[in-house]
């Protein structure tokens, strides 16, 4: 451990640039901004880039509805329906008024909360539409690394030639939210503006976290870690689906998510979402009701990532009893 002439190559942004290239995104380190998680990315973008009174189109339901980031900055949210292939281009086209300043916020990979993976075909349609409508996109890809069955199609950002898409990634969902490390990718001019606001906000993300993130990404350990996570999530997904079949059965409807860790559970019950939420909580189960994501039909978000497998089984079993009025 000599002190002489040791070259320190700490290049987190270069490591992220290399990592993005595997996804088909060509981004120089100068067009990347390190942020303290994807939520800070949304904050910076809403404050610095979007105008008061502008519209943010988004999937409905969406995780974004559970935050007040954009509304607090004077924007309003306009929900677009989804089918099993993702957000509906036709509805987006109908609702978009070209004379207004609007953007599209979308989670193409393993959407939060529905788990839906936008198909390649749908991605092409959306890309064509936004080009025609000159609608900028905010692409949230924090679940993309957690694919379970097949590698997802390329991010929308991979097809972006004109800097029309801002892309958000993070280590929070795939490694640890405790690091507080995420990134925004965009055109260099836009990234510099956001970097200026970031400096005014917190003078940069933690040096230690950035060094740790660099080691994970550049050593190949992150890829190895993802492989192990996938194996475990596959087991968890299987057990969860089996338990849903067994205890919810006809009282619910769900899709098998191809990645991420959410199952969107539509339930058929005389009880309201509020009642099911409260009764579950009384039984020691915390469930996110769909209404926090602006879902009006009775639905709940099931995560198969967090609780111990036996607890997931117990929780779903108890939920089944509650839905049958036996709980």
């Amino acid at each position: 451990m000599g002190m002489r002439s040791r070259k320190v190559i700490l290049k987190l942004r270069q490591a992220i640039s290399d990592y993005l290239l595997q996804k088909g995104i060509l981004a120089s380190p100068y067009s990347i901004l390190i942020v303290s998680g994807a939520l800070q990315a949304l904050q910076l973008i809403s404050i610095r880039l979007l105008q008061k009174g502008s519209t943010v189109f988004l999937e409905k339901p969406s995780y974004l509805y559970s935050l007040s980031t954009f509304q607090a900055a004077g924007m309003h949210l306009s929900g677009i329906g989804m089918d099993e292939e993702g957000i509906l281009p036709k509805e987006l086209k109908e609702k978009n008024n070209k004379s207004e300043r609007s953007i599209l916020y979308t989670i193409p990979n393993f959407h939060n909360p529905t788990g839906i993976l936008m198909t390649e075909e749908r991605r092409k349609e959306i890309l064509q539409l936004v080009e025609k409508e000159q609608l900028p996109i905010l692409e949230d890809d924090v679940y993309g690394d957690l694919w379970l069955d097949n590698l997802p199609p390329s991010p929308l950002k991979a097809a972006d030639k004109n800097g029309n898409i801002l892309y958000i990634g993070s280590l929070s969902k795939s490694l640890s939210p405790g690091l507080r490390i995420g990134w925004i990718v965009g055109s260099q001019a836009v990234i510099e503006r956001l970097a200026d606001l970031k400096m005014q906000t917190d003078y940069g993300s933690s040096s230690l976290s950035q060094k740790v993130a660099y080691e994970w990404l550049s050593s190949g350990l992150y890829e190895q870690h993802l492989e192990q996570i996938r194996e475990q999530l596959l087991i968890r997904r299987e057990v969860t689906l089996k338990t849903l079949n067994e205890y919810i059965g006809d009282l619910g409807q769900w899709r098998i998510p191809q990645g991420g860790f959410f199952i969107w559970l539509r339930v058929f019950s005389d009880l309201s979402m509020r009642e099911i939420y409260s009764r579950s909580l009384e039984k020691g189960i915390l469930l996110n009701p769909g209404n926090i994501y602006s879902q009006t039909n009775t639905a709940f978000q099931i995560s198969f990532a967090n609780a111990a497998i036996e607890d997931i089984e117990t929780g779903i079993q108890k939920l089944g009893f509650i839905l049958r009025g036996e709980g």
Binding site: Q228, I229, F261, I285, N288, S303, N306, A307, I312
Partner: peptide
């Protein structure tokens, strides 16, 4: 709350922490 079964939490379990 560690007493509750977290059936919706969007964070990998501690079991999966490397």
């Amino acid at each position: 709350d560690p007493e509750l079964i977290q059936l919706s939490k969007g964070e990998l379990s501690k079991e999966m922490f490397p």
